[in-house]
Design a protein around this nucleic acid. Structure first.
Length: 116
RNA sequence: UGAGCGGUCCAGACGGUCGCGGCUUGGGUUUUCGCCCUUGUCGAGGAACGUCCGGGCUCCAUAGGGCAGGGUGGUUGCUAACGGCAACCCGGGGUGACCCGCGGGAAAGUGCCACAGAGAACAGACCGCCGCGGCUCUUUGGGGACGCGGUAAGGGUGAAACGGUGGUGUAAGAGACCACCAGCGUCCCGGGUGACCGGGACGGCUUGGUAAACCCCACCCGGAGCAAGGUCAAAAGGGGUCUUCGGGCCCUGCGCGGAUGUUCGAGGGCUGCCCGCCCGAGUCCGCGGGUGGACCGCACGAGCCCGUCGGCGACGGCGGGCCCAGAUGGAUGGCCGUCACCGGUGAGCGGCGACGCGAUCCGGUCACAGAACCCGGCGUAUCGGGCCGCUCGUCCA
RNA sequence: GCUGGUGUGGCGCAAUUGGCAGCGCAACCGCCUUGUAAGCGGUAGGUUGCGGGUUCGAGUCCCGCCACCAGCU
């Protein structure tokens, strides 16, 4: 899973990352912010009460942590990511969550064309 | 063999692999903090849940008195304590094993009892029954409506109608009187620690329900909560002093403004009021600012397991063994295999049949649910399974 | 961790000391209008969040749950 150093651990880091690029796919919303590279890539998770009880929330969080841990080494240092789970995530299996996460990250990384 | 009652235990198992958190062995690196590799070990529940009670612990003063307020409510025990548990008593349910009960007081007082009904709380004459009176009808037996009075045995209303049955009595009736029964009160005898139980004597013939209405009685209750509380660090500003004017050292612990106060005592603590007591030089309001970190508390405890003794039991004594989560954006997990279990499929086998057994393959691991200071309970949620004891019925011997 | 509140027709709200569960809007039907709206008349719609208990009788009183909302530290 994720060692302590690879996790976002305070409110300031979270809100900074949340202000970055956002993309949603399936059951997850990904916030991505490219930092200066002073530290390695880091990730944080937000699973609200709307997703379910404590057992469900923990299960969703653990699956997401495993998924992110597999992908984290590929990211450039300084990348901060916050993964938010939507209520739909409670019914998603491991493979489905993986697909959602990959799609959302790809979308967030792609330079978005300016609208309007 | 069918139906049921009570209790108790489990909460998929094993292996592989990749990981996470705590403690730890050895090594590397680094001025330290730390980081990396490595060794070993531990890592969710019976409800961890809801937060309905009780305690430990910490601070408030060592936790005081009275009133108010709140809680509990059969008895005897168990316990650190409880609103919990055990046994027993009483009442109710069940053929039974057994289950259910906020189960003190209604002759201390106050309140309430809608609608219906004649009358609803020191009762009450609507119908009926009975007597008397005049009137009237008459087939001369008697009938009818009316008035006055008697009557609580019958009808009807209601959740509830002021004891029940039988007799005496009477115009008809009535505890008016009598016998038995039920119930109440007082006293006595026996049993039990006690709630209470069994028996007897006497007394008015009889007193409704509601206290989860106010209330009375007995007993219990100080407040807040680990964000308790403590240690350290950091911080802005102010004052003093030295100065080579760069700054150094010491004290205080944010600054500014306002109000009030220093044995003529503010303010605070003991939740509200009174008393009593204690601390006592600050306290309150407005505006603006700083830090919002680390460690301790924090996991050896009313601890768990085994044996034995006492007790009907809850539980307790003794002996031995064991160490068993400690995170802080919050660890305890992901994937794979085998077995087991469950659901589906149903080759085939047994049987006249209903049906039973069941290869193979597919899917699932699951119900309720996640520690956050710690315990004892209660309540609630829940897929199933194992074991023990007991009851009632049926069949066979 | 602690504390308080709410739950009643589809929606918003009432209900005196416990005594027939109501009101407005909405819905449906009819009238009015050339038609619609407004207006008028009528109709239906309720496990009072759930489960127990006290009582003759519970939306109301007591106990236990469920959901939602708010506050304090």
């Amino acid at each position: 899973m994720l060692p302590k150093a690879a996790r976002l651990r305070n409110r300031a880091d979270f809100s900074a990352t949340m202000r970055g690029r956002r993309a949603a796919r399936g059951a997850v919303v990904v916030h991505l912010k490219q930092g200066d590279g002073a530290h390695g890539a880091r990730a944080g998770f937000v699973v609200s009460k709307a997703v379910g009880g404590a057992v469900v929330r923990n299960r969703v969080k653990r699956r997401l942590r495993h998924l992110v841990a597999e992908r984290l080494p590929a990211w450039t240092p300084g990348t901060d990511v916050v993964v938010r789970a939507l209520p739909l995530a409670a019914e998603r299996g491991y493979a489905e969550l993986a697909a959602d996460l990959d799609a959302a990250i790809a979308l967030a990384r792609k330079p978005r064309e300016r609208r309007g």
